[in-house]
Design a protein around this nucleic acid. Structure first.
Lengths: 359, 359
DNA sequence: AGCACGGATGTAAAGGTTTTCAGCGCCATA
DNA sequence: TATGGCGCTGAAAACCTTTACATCCGTGCT
């Protein structure tokens, strides 16, 4: 009887969990140095075709995945992005997050999400914590003080979403044009006295909307004379005279809208533009409770186009702000390191909550 | 005249951006070795008190923050968590995400978010990609095939949210009890024929709800005889006889609810329980469009308690499932490496969409 | 023939941290 | 007076990758 003993250098080791296969393993298996492996993977043109093939092949069969931490240690780039939103429960943000997330994954980046629970004070700290682990962060921060923002931007690559400050890349939307579409729509329906219920004064988006409102207001000012200059995108029909009344700022929530409703109803207007959809929904809710017909007695128009707006009855007419595209654009800016301000288009979506002025 | 030249080893270098202060810098400044610094920071009891003080002091003044990548390289732990949700735009998920995120930050962990866009096929791949960069992942994946899930769980630490499979830690909610509360509420209002519109058959949550429904159904079965055993949480009033009719499965969306509405209205029921709030909202919407009074003609009851439900008119009665707490619990399980199944309580929230049966 | 050059590959350092091991001084015990 | 142990600290290895530098060889030129 002949016994054959096979001696192997590596005893048949029992591995639990996923085996971490390193670049060294690939190098050994392919019979090259680690340097060649890394070159084959990231500078394919500098290594001989035959070698490259062999390396790539073994890498694949071994299931090699570079260790990003190790890579980051030396390159300084992590392949990760940070994303900070004030409140994920606000239905405006998930769309942006999805956009960021999708684009980042396309570019083979992972994204850290941080939700600050509407606490602007905590934001800067959070970003700095993240800073070490990411190549840049996209920041949705309507309320953070500009100085703080600027300091942050000096330290790490940032792109702002729905906020603009000098010298920092950002992506926003054409609020002015949106507002023009909104008011144009309402005046075309015969409304001559329109309320705007404002959001938080500290919010960039609100300031911007008020600015737009007033700009459009000048065009349709009460005297009924056509505004002199034509706007690029077509301007509000100036034949209709129209009065805009701004109403005190509310929290940008459903509750804010509910609270504002009675004031709006007392203001003698036939239409109202809300700071955002959430506020508009609040208005709608209170109107329903008080038996005010929408759009019969009051037309309601929102901003944002949150999914919710299409689900209520009557469905909400709103100025749609790009969310996914904004997120994607932000990631693009970040990855291309372009210090650029991008402005995305807005679009009025007419649904059931606006109608002809009655009376 | 005497000129003094001071030669320094380091020319006054101009640094742009944040200076990365390393453990070496701290060690030099404190006059100790790097080993002592790391010990002072993470094994405080093994270093002499005076030394520890000095090191901690200098670390703070220098603003030292350990480089997590480097640490992870050697310890194998990253201090990061992964979180995977099927669709962030579904208002059920932001609450969970917020919970996960909040708890993770408390534990000084950052979280990677991945949204799979309702594509169960892509999920496993995503998780594996993340796997290298995280210590574990919390998985909201109602649809991923169980086999795949199991394979995943074998490779990396996982905790499931709102899904349960053998041998894997998970956090879910007391569906059965919730269903009991719901039906109890409806029968108390005098409803004797109640529809359930089911969600996707492939969804664990739907299977679970159907199971609960049938279990409760046995208790209140048409013969009107009281069920024998009392349930722990108080049981459905068995005096009322009640018939449950299950209706075909729909997509778990607003549109799904809209589509299901006409069938429900044709089924001769006075109340309907929807798979989730989104579906319930769809029902509500279609009812409003058809002039069906809610709750007068039909009582509508949802599951989940998404914020939206409180904003519509009439506001939605619903079985609230914990979202933030579920996220937090999931993180706890993950970090404590406890292979445990946790079941959170559910609670009926009565709002305006349910009322006494008429006729 | 000698030389420079360029292509392909290997060697080694570097990046920041943790951990193992060794060293040192000192006290208690034998 | 040795010896052992203990408390504290430092040196160096290790983690995995990328990159700067060195090596080797063949080719074309002077």
């Amino acid at each position: 009887m002949i016994m054959v003993y096979v001696l192997t250098a590596d005893p048949p080791e029992i591995k639990t969990g996923p085996v971490a296969v390193t670049i060294k393993d690939v190098a050994r298996a392919a019979g090259v140095s680690v340097a060649t492996v890394t070159r084959a993977l990231s500078m394919p043109d500098v290594v001989r075709a035959a070698t490259r093939e062999r390396v790539l092949e073994t890498a694949k069969t071994l299931g090699y995945q570079p260790n990003r931490a190790a890579r980051g240690l030396i390159t300084g780039r992590t392949g990760n992005l940070g994303l900070l939103v004030p409140d994920l429960a606000n239905p405006f943000f998930p769309g942006i997050v999805k956009g960021v997330q999708a684009r980042a994954h396309e570019a083979d980046h992972a994204v850290f999400l941080a939700d600050t629970d509407e606490n602007p004070a905590a934001e800067a700290g959070l970003v700095r914590k993240l800073a070490k682990q990411v190549d840049g962060v996209v920041l949705c921060s309507p309320r953070m003080p500009e100085a703080e923002l600027r300091a942050l931007a000096a330290d790490i690559p940032i792109v702002l979403v729905y906020r603009r400050i000098p010298g920092t890349p950002s992506v926003t939307a054409a609020f002015l044009d949106g507002m023009r579409q909104a008011i144009s729509h309402l005046t075309a329906l015969g409304h001559q006295r329109i309320a705007y219920v404002a959001g938080p004064r500290s919010s960039w988006a609100n300031r911007e909307r008020v600015k737009s409102l007033r700009a459009v207001g000048r065009d349709v000012a009460g005297n009924g004379s056509p505004a002199g200059r034509a706007s690029a995108e077509g301007k509000v029909s100036a034949a209709a005279k129209c009065e805009l009344v701004e109403m005190g700022s509310v929290t940008p929530t459903f509750e804010g809208g509910v609270a504002a409703a009675d004031g709006v109803l007392a203001a003698g207007v036939t239409a109202v533009i809300a700071y955002n959809d959430l506020v508009a929904l609040g208005l709608l809710h209170r109107c329903a409770a008080r038996g005010v017909r929408v759009p019969g007695d009051l037309s309601v128009l929102g901003f944002d186009d949150i999914p919710l707006g299409a689900m209520v009855h009557p469905a909400l007419t709103t100025v749609a702000l790009p969310k996914g595209p904004a997120g994607r654009a932000a990631v693009d800016l970040l990855l291309q390191e372009r210090k650029e301000k991008r402005e995305l288009p807005t679009q009025l979506i007419v649904r059931g909550s606006t109608g002809p002025a009655e009376g």
